[in-house]
Design a protein around this nucleic acid. Sequence first.
DNA 1: GATTTCATTTTGATTAGTCAAAGTCTCTTC
DNA 2: GAAGAGACTTTGACTAATCAAAATGAAATC
Lengths: 219, 219
Amino acid sequence: MPSATVENYIKKILVLSLDTREGQVGMGEIAKGLEVAAGTATSMIKNLERSKLVRYKSRQGVTLTAKGRKLGMDMLRRHRLVETFLVETLGLDWTEIHQEAEELEHAISEKVLDRLDKFLGRPEYDPHGDPIPTKDGKFAERRIRNLLECQSKQPRTIKLLTDQSTDFLNFARRKGLVPGTSVEVTNRDLISDAVELRVGNKKPFTLGSKAAKKILVSS
Amino acid sequence: MPSATVENYIKKILVLSLDTREGQVGMGEIAKGLEVAAGTATSMIKNLERSKLVRYKSRQGVTLTAKGRKLGMDMLRRHRLVETFLVETLGLDWTEIHQEAEELEHAISEKVLDRLDKFLGRPEYDPHGDPIPTKDGKFAERRIRNLLECQSKQPRTIKLLTDQSTDFLNFARRKGLVPGTSVEVTNRDLISDAVELRVGNKKPFTLGSKAAKKILVSS
DNA sequence: GATTTCATTTTGATTAGTCAAAGTCTCTTC
DNA sequence: GAAGAGACTTTGACTAATCAAAATGAAATC
């Protein structure tokens, strides 16, 4: 059995690698992501290599093996199912469940997880709009892009916010930018680095490119 | 925050002390109960003393302080609420949930626990018939004795099985000895060390005193 | 009272995970 | 191509939890 710590490293490497073409992740990203000293990450990665969960080239980076990817997907599944449960069943607020799930995901057995999945009606997306991997480690199909990539004058549905910090989520909620909501890009100006959009019938407002990038929509 | 290990020690000391008049628990019991070497228990107990969770007299025994008792009751509350959830909501079998709860109880936050309690309808007893402590650490009243102490010819309701090993629970279920069931002691013979009892309208059968002691009933 | 027994405590080692700080690469930049 | 900047790795040390085995104490037996 992998320890909770190992599970956390693998999960972090997986989510970081999803943003990278090559799937290769640098030591610094891992250390920063997990809030540990750089040296700690290095030595842990060597462990993970010994357990054949990652491949590691000194001073280059880390990639998941098939085994590591499987574990990572499993952790993502756990995390997202637990989050779904916390919101759907217990009625907690979707801005504050991340940390809770972070703990519970390590404590839940395969059997209980399956029951939970069934109880929740085998959901495909979690409350943030993230797809929940299936038991065999595959994501539900998703065709979504971030707001910065979107042509204007077309209605879109918010699917996912990639920044799950409480601050960002609160900001998003104030603006009505929650998964499921319909929005329209009314104007784009890449020079001034801004995207103007309208949520429902409210007055349009402008978003910087950093924020726009964090908001994924389906078209 | 106490570690999961500390929580386990305190919980074990609490349940052991509930069976003792003095509330004093020996080192051996703790070590055996937690399946650790005797020396491990000794050194851990010293830690707990430093944290003011227990009082400890060398070669005599351990008692919980008010603080320790509070933590222990909280752990019992967690454990039993989680068990209730696993059976009531997820439909798991009550003979196999103990170990699951053993993990989850450490991972669940106060807030989630409260929501869970509410969701379950603030239950007073868990699926084994054990009372669930309230948030302020008090047990629901209970007036129950074990089958060996019972006079015959009186209907009683099974409340609790004190041995939660899978083997015993399976045996109990085969015989219909589940919490909530009505039974009647038809004969007692303390010399031959046996209790005869009838479950519902089935044919009476005989139980040894060891087993009879493990079955608690209300009259 | 001396001896034996058995529970308990002490001791010394081990493992997982961590940090700070010192050392080493590699890639710019001039 | 030398120097410096940053990223990365190594080193040495620490904590929590554990074990096995040796030492100790207290109670029971002789």
